[in-house]
Simulated assay, not measured.
Amino acid sequence: MPPTDASTDADTPTPVATGEITARAENTDGQDTLDLRLPDELLALIAEQDGPASAVGTASEHRITDTPTGPVEPDLLDNVGEWGPVTTPSGVFQLVPARIERDVALICRWMNDPAVAAFWELAGPEAVTVDHLRPQLEGDGRSVPCLGVLDGTPMSYWEIYRADLDPLARHYPARPHDTGVHLLIGGVANRGHGLGTTLLKAVADLVLDHRPPCARVIAEPDLRNTPSVSAFLSAGFRFSAEVDLPDKRAALMVRDRALRTVL
């Protein structure tokens, strides 16, 4: 079963939930909040995974060079690869959609870090990483795996996904266009210094800036992962509920557009 948690500042990366569901989520007042059956035209869409940047080499030598791209068709996540860079207190950060042939060795190395493997459960040869990436890259675009690139160097792995179209929606009152994030920090040197909090805030802002229909950014770190939960809280997320997922008890973290300037 794929992982379903997210990692931030601590040495505690997180699992991911992906897959298809057809259930209807309900609001706390009993009203339907989402019909999870996608229209046929949306099911036919394939997410564009080639972003406006090119990344090669190892994490230490990997640089990003912007390249022009033509118009892209809208997808289920409003073209993550087109969101562009954002300036943070730690440097210029950008989400670059992953490509197997370019990025599998780097992501595989991160997945084999014992601290990461404990939560993501994706340790092993590159074939394991490929098997995790390919369904997302060849799916309908409801989940986009990305490299997090800071000042031109890839240092984290992200999955931006439609939480309302994910199995997670079976376990909480999902709303249309809820957008989820999973994160792992790749290098030990980048963990434990507040960088995860900085990047979580930046990515949540990117989601809200580029996805107007999205009213909430969702995350579900393992409830036992206190540093991870703390990082989400520091990044402007609020603790919403405890939820029982198939392989963990999670803290449902929510960043509301309406409370964006408050939390």
Rank of each mutant, 00 (worst) to 15 (best):
M1N: 10
A6V: 15
D11E: 10
T12I: 07
A17F: 08
T18F: 11
I21A: 10
I21L: 13
R24V: 14
R24I: 14
G30A: 09
P39M: 12
P39L: 11
D40F: 10
E41Y: 11
L42P: 04
L42G: 13
A47H: 13
Q49K: 11
D50C: 10
S54L: 09
G57T: 03
T58D: 15
T58S: 15
A59Q: 14
D66C: 07
V72D: 06
D75K: 07
D78V: 05
G81N: 04
V86W: 02
G91K: 09
G91A: 10
V92Q: 14
F93V: 03
Q94S: 07
V96K: 00
R102I: 08
R102D: 15
V104G: 02
V104L: 15
A105I: 00
L106M: 15
I107H: 01
D113A: 11
P114N: 04
A115R: 13
A115E: 08
V116M: 02
E121H: 09
L122F: 06
G124A: 06
V128T: 13
D131N: 13
P135E: 11
P135L: 03
S143K: 03
V144S: 02
P145D: 08
C146F: 02
C146S: 09
L150D: 02
D151M: 12
G152C: 04
T153F: 12
M155T: 10
W158L: 14
W158Q: 03
D164V: 10
D166Q: 07
P167W: 06
R170M: 15
H171P: 03
Y172N: 08
R175V: 15
H177V: 01
D178R: 07
G180H: 04
V181E: 01
L183V: 15
L184Q: 04
G186N: 05
G186C: 05
G186Q: 06
G187E: 15
V188W: 11
N190H: 14
R191L: 04
H193A: 06
G194M: 01
V203C: 11
V203M: 09
A204L: 03
D205A: 06
D205P: 06
L206K: 05
V207S: 03
D209P: 03
P212Y: 09
I218W: 02
L223Q: 08
T226Y: 15
S228D: 03
L233H: 02
S234V: 00
F237T: 00
R238Y: 12
V243Q: 12
D244R: 08
L245P: 01
P246W: 09
P246H: 06
K248S: 09
R249M: 04
A251M: 04
L252F: 01
D256Y: 15
L259N: 13
L263A: 12
